[in-house]
């Protein structure tokens, strides 16, 4: 690459021009090469930056609730309860195409005091004859509210295998932070269930790391 650039550069001037130009040809070639190297560095950097946007976006979303994804496990249970307020948490599910499971919350909503630890259950049933592994992906709306929804235990932290025809009840233990802004009175927690049976072992590792 370096040689090719040097050759390209050596072509760049005509003798007549060089006879009169104040700078000699060697010097100009050097200068051009240095500038090209700097520009290539920027280009490489921007290519990497394109990929770096992926983790940057995740971090940004985690701090701002930008995309409403809520995958972080809360370290501890709630300490204080604000019993002066009631917040409604709506629960909803979707099953992605090609996933022959039934997947539903056992209740459509739950009213809680901020800070109160609560359990809600979801039922899943494999309607097909084969063993299938499912992965539920959470999403909270409004996205900002996701920052205040803390899950201490959730089936979404792990993949869920089910044999053909088998059914299971899955729990979610959560609390809503007492510092949730006044204007949020209702929040919605949605789970979309995906079929991850085909995802290989190695990839499922990556997935968990990513989550």
């Amino acid at each position: 690459m370096g040689d090719a650039i040097a050759r390209a550069l050596s072509q760049s001037y005509h003798t007549t021009y060089c006879e009169v130009i104040i700078m000699n040809r060697e010097q100009l070639t050097q200068q051009n090469r240095r500038l090209v190297q700097k520009l290539l560095l920027i280009i490489g950097g921007m290519f990497c930056f394109g990929f770096a946007l992926v983790p940057l976006y995740d971090v940004f979303c985690e701090f701002t609730g930008l995309n409403g994804r809520n995958t972080i496990k809360a370290e501890q249970q709630s300490q204080s309860i604000d019993s002066s307020r009631v917040v409604r948490l709506q629960l909803t599910t979707s099953v992605s195409p090609g996933m022959p499971w039934q997947f539903k919350p056992n209740q459509h909503y739950i009213d809680v005091h901020p800070g109160e630890n609560k359990v809600v259950k979801f039922s899943a049933k494999n309607l097909s004859g084969q063993a299938i592994v499912g992965q539920a992906i959470p999403s909270v709306s409004p996205g900002l509210a996701g920052l205040y929804l803390n899950k201490t235990e959730c089936f979404c932290f792990n993949q869920q295998p089910l044999a053909g025809g088998e059914s299971v009840e899955m729990g979610l233990v959560f609390f809503i932070s007492p510092d949730i802004p006044e204007h949020i009175s209702t929040l919605t927690l949605s789970y979309t269930l995906f079929n991850v049976t085909d995802v290989t072992e190695a990839e499922s590792h990556n997935l968990q790391a990513a989550l």
């Binding site: 099953v95 992605s96 195409p97 090609g98 996933m99 022959p100 309607l127 097909s128 079929n195």
Partner: peptide, 17 residues
């Protein structure tokens, strides 16, 4: 029957169940 009921992931073929 399965593909009509449950669809095929990653295609326009939906679950019609």
């Amino acid at each position: 029957i399965d593909i009509v009921l449950h669809g095929k992931a990653g295609t326009a073929m939906q679950a019609f169940s």
